[in-house]
């Protein structure tokens, strides 16, 4: 069978990687904002805590001394803010931030 005549040419098969589920950051209503003054690894300069990295269901938080949240794919679920023992993450209305950014 020639390639163009092949059956099942269109299937949902893909390689794993960021963005396979689309730009899910656009789903976000609340944006997690990290305060480096309160964040344990940032404040102590130690590889410690990382509760946000452990609990993030989408793997968009880095395990770095100042964890970085990838807003391209963060859906804004708020689990990181809920789990952060230092209260370093605040969920802020996305609309307020967008209005501020547009000023």
């Amino acid at each position: 069978m020639k390639k163009k005549d092949a059956f099942a040419q269109r299937k949902s098969h893909s390689e794993p990687g960021p963005g396979d589920g689309g730009r899910t950051g656009s789903w976000r209503v609340l944006r997690p904002i990290l305060d480096p003054e309160k964040c344990i690894p940032a404040k102590t300069n130690k590889n410690a805590c990382y509760a946000c990295w452990i609990f993030c269901p989408d793997g968009v938080v880095t395990k770095t001394k100042l964890p970085v949240i990838d807003y391209e794919y963060c859906k804004g679920c708020g689990i990181c803010a809920e789990e952060c023992p230092a209260g370093a993450i605040t969920m802020v209305e996305e609309t307020l931030l967008i209005m501020e950014e547009e000023k």
């Binding site: 299937k11 949902s12 098969h13 893909s14 390689e15 794993p16 960021p18 396979d20 589920g21 689309g22």
Partner: peptide, 23 residues
């Protein structure tokens, strides 16, 4: 060789991780 099968599709087409248009 890990792969994704039948992950969520959105109403419109979109590029895959390589940037090619996925059905």
């Amino acid at each position: 060789c890990p792969k994704n099968l039948n992950t969520v599709t959105l109403p419109d087409i979109r590029p895959d991780v390589r940037g090619d248009t996925a059905p």
